[in-house]
């Protein structure tokens, strides 16, 4: 089954990238994690997302487009990226989720793709 690993972290946490330049560099644990997913043959895809300051929301109501600055919901932890992995069952997906560097200081949500 395919599972999406959604990585929620507080953008204001200590050690989080504070400017655009530092956000470009990917730290060693994330590189190692991604390589481990690829080596195990479970990696389907994944991306890091820009910070919530770059988010824009769109709604269509009565044919009218409402465009707004900011994320869908103001939460303490924000969706910062995702992986899509293919594993035999939920337990195997949870194993990989627990190894994700984001699990150390954030929350990982695991959802099946339908």
């Amino acid at each position: 089954m395919n599972y999406m690993i959604l990585i929620y972290q507080d953008e204001a946490r200590p050690g989080a990238p504070t400017d655009a330049a530092s956000a470009q560099t990917i730290s060693a644990p994330w590189i190692a994690y991604t390589q481990a997913l690829i080596a195990a043959g479970v990696m389907v895809g994944g991306h890091r997302l820009g910070p919530i300051a770059t988010a824009t929301t769109v709604r269509l109501r009565d044919g009218k487009r409402h465009v707004q600055d900011g994320p869908f919901a103001e939460t303490k932890e924000q969706l910062g990226g995702y992986y899509i992995i293919n594993t035999p069952d939920l337990d195997a997906a949870l194993e990989w989720a627990a190894k994700c560097p984001g699990a150390l200081d954030g929350t990982i949500e695991v959802r099946p793709l339908v």
Partner: peptide, 10 residues
């Protein structure tokens, strides 16, 4: 069913 919880002994 939907989350694919595996039928196995941990």
């Amino acid at each position: 069913r939907a989350a694919g919880i595996g039928f196995r002994v941990p």
